[in-house]
Design a protein around this nucleic acid. Structure first.
Length: 141
DNA sequence: TAGGCCATCTGGTCCT
DNA sequence: AGGACCAGATGGCCTA
């Protein structure tokens, strides 16, 4: 019985450490995600969903950069968090006078319906728009 | 006060 | 056998 208990306590310790490592990784992920306000702390689920979306936005920007070849306007992908995260909630923004404004990004959504759900606007911290602003140097690689 | 988020404990399962 | 991983249960804290 005593052995069983000490084994359980050891297991508890390992589990605690494992979760701490998981949380550290989540914190590291939070640090590289742009939030507004900057000190707003995303919950775990928000962090994962936003990271998923953010990665999509970055890769989408690279794709647009390829299409735009030669365009010199800065590019900005904007997510309107006041609406569900479907393709219509994302827009590609650039100067009105530019020919770069006519393209629309593909949706981050795939065939699975749960992926349509990455970003829930009910969020406490990020009530307005999230601007994923990419520097021109990066946009036109 | 209800609901959301979180940390921790726990037992089960899988892997080495 | 022991460790890693996972999911359910529980209780504390915070906010609307």
């Amino acid at each position: 019985m005593k052995i069983k208990k000490s084994r359980r306590l050891k297991a508890n310790n390992r589990e605690r450490n494992r979760m701490h490592h998981l949380n550290s990784a989540l914190d590291a992920l939070r640090e590289v995600l742009p939030t507004f306000p900057e000190d707003a702390k995303l919950t775990k689920i928000e962090t994962l969903r936003f990271a998923h979306n953010y990665i999509w936005a970055l890769s989408e920007t690279l794709r647009l950069a390829d299409q735009l070849h030669g365009c010199t306007e800065p590019a900005m992908l904007i997510q309107d968090s006041s609406s569900p995260s479907t393709s219509s909630s994302w827009s590609y923004s650039s100067s009105p006078s530019s020919s770069c404004g006519s393209l629309s990004p593909a949706s981050p959504a795939t065939s699975t319906s749960d992926i349509l759900d990455y970003w829930q606007p009910a969020d406490r911290h990020l009530s307005q728009q999230h601007h994923l602003l990419l520097p021109a140097s990066m946009t036109f690689l």
